[in-house]
Amino acid sequence: MQMAWKEVKKSKMKFLILGSIIFLVSFLTFIISGLANGLSEDNAALIKNVPNGQFYLNEDAKQTYNLSKIDVDQQDKLLADYKGATALSIQMGFVNDADDKQHSVAFVTSTDSELFPNVKDNEVVLDASLKDDGIKVGDVLTNNQFSGAFKVAGFAEKQTYSHAPVAFISMKNYQEIYRVMEMQTVFIPGSDSPDSVKGLESFNNKEFLNTIPSYGAEQMSLNMIIWFLVVISGMLFAIFFYMMNVQKIGLYGILKAIGVKTSSLFSMMWYQMLLITVVSLVLSVGLSQLFSLVAPAGMPFSLPIETTLLLSVVFLVIGFIGATISGFQIKKVEPLQAIQQGEM
């Protein structure tokens, strides 16, 4: 360990360069992860906020929630049979404020439930982000499909869907706007092993998110970038330690000649890898958390500390694997060859 630390101290620049690269790659990974999470929240906070359970869609809906219609009798039976069950519908739309300015929203309505605000007829509860557009409690909003007007009854925190703020309205108003009597889905909380219901298909929360158009594609692209960066950082470790090991073949040979164990040489490399990675990760975790505090309000950015810690562990594992693969050279070094090569 001491030898590893002394090399780091003596060759500061070399290790600083690797540390900077790991810092930049991990920082970029955290930022993209924050954006992926932020976009995911922006796209589906409404669904992510509900507890684990099962969403039931009509089998004929081809796993697309907005094509689903639950038969009213079947819905009533499900709501009666399962405690906490709720039927809900989501449709994209818009509202106009007093200045006739249009605001894109996702109209959501549900049967009586603790999961969603219970809204009276001709009232609306909006996602709090609409406050930034100047909308206040008591304002009156309109919709060209709706004969009446919505009075803003309140705001709900972090209720977005498909990158639009949610507008909770009563079922009666929803049925008038969309001219439909049936709900799109029934949600039953807490059923890990879903009961099969004739004519309906069940989805857990994660599966249901993938029925949202664009959600899967968006998350897949961002996650692909994240994992590419993680793999690239592993390759960087492998390449850097490979280069460093090539430079030190002679040294390793001499150390082996005087009796240093191969395992001690591996430990030296692992210690250096761990030191560089931990320092780089602490900096990038700190900076990315700082960024999440100062990110512009309009930027969908969410970086829970658990996510950064999980990615940090992945970076450490990848770095360990990369360094170890490059370290196989150490095993192959022949002391005699190193001695015959002359001065290091």
Partner: peptide, 15 residues
């Protein structure tokens, strides 16, 4: 039990 002296000193450069 053994000690070595080579043609080149082969010292560890960072120690």
């Amino acid at each position: 039990e053994f000690g070595f002296v080579f043609q080149s000193s082969h010292l560890v450069p960072f120690l």
